[in-house]
Structure formats: C-alpha cells, structure tokens
Design a protein around this nucleic acid. Structure first.
Length: 608
DNA sequence: CGCAATCGGATAACATCT
DNA sequence: AGATGTTATCCGATTGCG
C-alpha cells in the first residue's frame, strides 16, 4: 500500500486556491439570500422569457449588499461586476463568483461587451482568463441559491423541456453577441442538445467572411476554437444528436423516464467483475466519443424509478451501467449503478480486504446477537437513524417475552432491525450504528467525519461512496497515471473518491471539488491537508462552474484525467418517493450539471 | 397482494446565541 | 426574552420480488 504521500512536488506555489471561503460563504448565506429581494422574483416563472426580462431589466444591486461584500474584503468594482454577472443566482453563487474573480486575477472591466481579453497560455500569468459573460449559462438564470428547501428550480426544469432549452441556448448566444436569427438557426441545425461551444462553432462555420461580430469572435477563435477542429466538432455533434434523437427526444415531456423501457438490474448485482473471482469481465464496448481521457465515473442509486437509468445512460453515451451491491465488498449492502468509461481489465481490490460479515466487522456485538436474527450483513447505510423511542419499544418487548421470543415479537423486532440497520449491543438491546462504525464500513479512515454534529455525520456518510467498491473500479488508473492525476470531483461529499484514489496509492496533483455542504467541504479539506501534497480547490455552487471557468482550470493544470461524481439523489429513490420525480426533481437535476460539465470538459480538452 | 427496501422531509421540541 | 439554529419524532410512497 505504498503511496506517494510523502513526495514533494514543489509545484504548489501558485496560490489560486482560495480556500477558507467556506465559512464566509455560508455565514453570509442566509443574510444575503433573505435580504435579496430579487431572489424570489421569479420563483414560479416557468419560462425563459421571464428570465430574460429579469436578467436584463434588473435594477442595480442594492447599496447595502454591495457594502456587505466590500466588508468581506472584496473591492467595490469586483462586487459590482460579480453582482451583475450573478444576476438572480443568490448569495451563495455570488460569493463563489467573487472568489472566482479574485482567484483568477481578473481585471474585471465593467464593460458588458463580449470579453475581449486574450488568453495567455502561461500558467503563472495572473491575468489570463476573462470571464466570458453567460458563456454556458443555459441554466444560470432565475435561480435562487439552495439555502431554503423550496428553491426555485425553474432553470433546471427548463433544461428538461426542449422548447425552453432551445430558448435558453438562443438567449445565451444572443448575450454573447450573435444575432438572434443566427443563434436560432444554429440551434435548429445542431439540435437543442448541442453544447454552446458546438453551437458557436456551427455559427462560425456557417459564416464565410466579414462577419458583423468579427471582432469578438475572432478573439475567441484565436484563443480557443482553432478552425482546424471544426470538422471534428460537427461530427461529434451529429453523433450526439443521433444518440439523443433516437429516443423520442422531441416528444417527451419531463425526463422522468416514465416513458422509457426499464433497465433490468442484474442478479446477483456484482457489476462487471468482482475481486478474486475467475469470471472474466463482461465485454462492454464504448462508443468512440466516450473514450477517455478524460475518464469519467458517475454514480447513482441502482433502485431508481422505472426508466431513469435508461435516461441516464442515454445522456452518458449509452454506456451500459455497472450495477454493484457493495455487500460484496463490505458488511453493508449498497446498491448502486456506475456509468464510467474506465478499462475493465486488471482491476485490483483495495487492501486490506474488509470483513463482509457483521460478526467479523464488529466482533463485540457477537455475544449479544440472538440466534433468531439471521442477518449477517447490514442493509444500506442511511442518512437517518432510528429514534430512541423505537429502541426502547424493542427492548421492552423483548424483556417481556420468553427467551426465544414468540414469532410475533421476533417478526416485529427483525422488521425494525432491518429497516433501521440496528445492531445488538446488549441484552435485548439494539442500537443504530455509530458514525465511526459507518466510516469503517464505508472504507473511510477512522474519525474522518469527526468534529461535526452527529446528525450531519450520519447524513454525510449515508450519502457517500463505499470506498472499496469505487476503488476497485478506479484501480485500473494506478498504472496509467504513475505521475498522478488531475481530478474534477463533482458532488464530492466527504471525499469518497479522493479517499479511494489515495488508498489506491494514486497521487492527486490537483483536485477541483464541487460540494455544496460546508461541513463536507471542511471534512475533505482537513483530510486533504493531512494526507495530500497536491492542490485542492473547493467550489460550493455547481452553477458557478461554467465552461469558461472549466477552461481556465484546464489551461492551468493541463486537463482533467478523471471526472468523478455521484449526484445526490433525493427524490430518486428510497424513503422519500413521496415527492419523487425522477430526473426532473430539483436535486436530481444535478445529474444534468454532471452531464453539462463533463461535456464541457471533453470539448475543451479536445480543443486545447 | 403482502412485504421488504430505501442516499428524506415537515414540524415540534430543545439548545444556543444575541 | 426573543430570534435563530439544531436535534428528535413521526411521517410517508413507490417499486420489485415472491
């Protein structure tokens, strides 16, 4: 298990990691959001036209807000520019933007024209990235930050409705300076699924010479989109259109998958291969445009509503998902699907192999485990734990029963034990797993999540990767990247992906991590500082990770080797199917951010 | 059809801060 | 003391499988 933690790379001198922002961002969250009247202006606005009006017709930012952020140490012009660019996106996103501008050393001219600055290639140059306004903001409008639960999510819903999506694309292009008719034509030509970069390319390709917007575009062309790649782009775009159009893309309503054919889950749920089994990995062919690098790895719950996985797969190059139950890797079940383009050969498990039976994982519980409880493994570790009241009811029921309790009591107790993952910790006494026990089951170092409230630990752990499972899939990267990797980690949570790579002995040169929860960012950061020598950049709001920001990162670090993430999947499964809405839900729509960002990374890396 | 499985949420009750 | 943040309690619905 040797790894390169001790190595000094001496290359972390450039201080564009603006960490330490988490606390500030969060503490100003509530105040900023509540005092911002615009956050709620279009809470119910369904269409993009409203958004256009809001985006353009908005009055100037309030003086008190400006002062608030100036008090945080941001120069006035940066605050003004960020507020302007941020639009209605809320305080969280605003802080991110402020930090981004500062991080990138933007000169922040307040002009609202198309960015005219050039983009030097030198990593050390402090003035290299102009933030191109609304470059890829198909869902940037009309959205308040997710501070409250009842966020306006019209932006993401629009993403799912092709008409609105088309409007959004046209709007983005118009804001970039293209004539509306040209923009609309491009969207018609390339399909509403085409990324902004493809659309731009298409517009430019259709022009011959002497464009009216030549000045802006040529700057852009020179620095980013070499004309030589045009053919390849159009080709890739056509392929993608075909892929999407093949599945009733034009006529469906919400993408909740309800109209799709279901994707059957494998039995047993062992994925493409398991450690120490002689079965050959299945033959999975990848379409050429899905080949890495960058490699990508996407996780979601296996037991999603009907058709959701078909839809997810369709957005990820139609790659066949790998459904794995982590009960083959540890003592707790965890049924997940993974879509990735990693090689399947030469996987190797993390060592030491964790115990797969409760009695081996927690030997001290063995003496209290009644013979009539047949469980040898836990169910899926959840984000919530049972109430103390239930534990007491169970204890009373058992103490009032004979030694082998009557079948009715047994049934009741077993039912509750299975439902809440209870362990026997004393005579007639059951209890939920402790957070550190969950850390162990999930493959994290002890006390990884220590320091935050118990409830937050449960929530963070319940949402996390099972490290051994993910590491088994990622293990093929070790020999491919002996010098280390640059990783884009989306919805990182407590850093399951990072821990997995670390435990595999894969060095992480740079990790850009997107995670909304402040406590999770803190956990990842503190683990990073203890174990890593590379650079960690934490981003709070996925919406601020625009394609121009991605491009800036790609230029700095020379590209991403791995894009990894699982989308937090409230509403997709489990105990809250009450408000479940498949891929249309406000949380699940983070999947579309994943797709958007992956798309962005791929096209930027193809270009550069 | 019953049952097990499931990466949540609204609200009351409680704790902490100003 | 009142506002604000955190924890505890009881809720639920949908799916697949036998």
């Amino acid at each position: 298990m040797a790894h390169c933690v001790g190595d000094s790379d001496g290359s972390d001198n450039f201080e564009w990691d603006s960490d330490g922002d988490g606390e500030e961002a969060a503490s100003f969250n509530a105040a900023g959001a509540s005092s911002s009247a615009m956050a709620s202006t279009n809470a119910d606005a369904p269409g993009p036209s409203t958004r256009v009006a809001n985006g353009n017709g908005k009055a100037g930012p309030s003086a008190s807000l400006v002062h608030k952020y100036m008090d945080m140490g941001f120069p006035e012009e940066i605050v003004l520019k960020a507020m302007k660019d941020n639009g209605d996106n809320g305080a969280d996103s605003l802080v991110e933007l402020l930090l981004t501008y500062q991080e990138l050393g933007n000169d922040l001219k307040v002009d609202n024209g198309f960015a005219s600055g050039c983009v030097p290639q030198n990593v050390d140059d402090s003035d290299d990235d102009d933030i191109l306004e609304n470059w890829d903001d198909e869902d940037a409008g009309g959205r308040s930050t997710g501070v409250a639960n009842s966020v306006d999510d019209s932006g993401d819903e629009d993403f799912l409705h092709e008409m609105s999506q088309t409007d959004e694309k046209v709007y983005s292009l118009v804001k970039m300076g293209f004539p509306e008719d040209e923009a609309a034509l491009a969207v018609t030509r390339c399909g509403q699924d085409a990324s902004i970069s493809v659309l731009v390319d298409s517009i430019y390709a259709s022009q011959t010479a002497g464009d009216v917007y030549c000045g802006n575009l040529s700057d852009y062309e020179d620095n980013s989109y070499g004309g030589r790649n045009k053919g390849r782009f159009m080709d890739a775009n056509k392929k993608r259109r075909k892929r999407y159009e093949g599945q009733a893309h034009g006529s469906r309503g919400p993408l909740d998958g309800s109209s799709d054919e279901p994707m059957p889950l494998p039995h047993p749920m062992v994925g493409f291969s398991l450690p120490h089994q002689c079965t050959r990995p299945v033959d999975r062919s990848l379409p050429s445009q899905a080949m890495g690098p960058p490699y990508f790895y996407y996780e979601n719950v296996a037991l999603a509503p009907k058709g959701v996985w078909t839809t997810i797969s369709r957005f990820l190059y139609d790659i066949q998902p790998e459904f794995v139950d982590s009960k083959y890797f540890c003592a707790a079940a965890r049924k997940r699907g993974y879509i990735h383009n990693l090689p399947l050969e030469n996987r190797s498990p993390l060592l030491p192999i964790p115990p797969k039976k409760i009695s081996e994982a927690f030997p001290h519980t063995k003496r209290w485990w009644p013979s009539w409880d047949p469980r040898r493994q836990f169910n899926c570790l959840q984000t919530c734990v049972s109430s103390a009241k239930l534990l007491e009811r169970i204890r009373v029921a058992l103490t009032n029963s004979s030694d082998p309790p009557p079948p009715r009591v047994q049934k009741f107790v077993l039912e509750e034990c299975r439902k809440w993952n209870l362990a026997w910790v004393g005579l007639n006494k059951v209890a939920p797993l402790e957070p550190d026990e969950m850390e162990f089951l999930l493959g994290f170092p002890k006390d990884h999540t220590r320091g935050i409230s118990r409830r937050e630990r449960y929530r963070s752990l319940g949402n996390s990767f099972q490290v051994d499972t993910v590491a088994y899939h990622l293990s093929v990267l070790k020999d491919m990247y002996p010098q280390g990797m640059n990783v884009l980690s989306l919805f990182s949570g407590i850093g399951g992906a990072e821990v997995a790579l670390h435990r595999l002995g894969i060095r992480m040169k740079t990790v850009i991590s997107v995670e909304k929860s402040e406590v999770n960012r803190t956990i990842l950061k503190s683990w990073w500082d203890q174990t890593q020598t590379g650079l960690l950049i934490e981003i709070c709001d996925v919406q601020t990770l625009t394609s121009e920001r991605i491009e800036a990162y790609v230029r700095r670090i020379g590209g991403f080797d791995l894009v990894i993430g699982g989308s937090p999947c409230n509403n997709l499964t489990g105990s809250n199917r009450y408000h479940r809405d498949g891929l249309e839900g406000e949380h699940s729509s983070l999947f579309y951010h994943y797709v958007r960002i992956l798309d962005s990374v791929k096209s930027i890396m193809e270009r550069l």
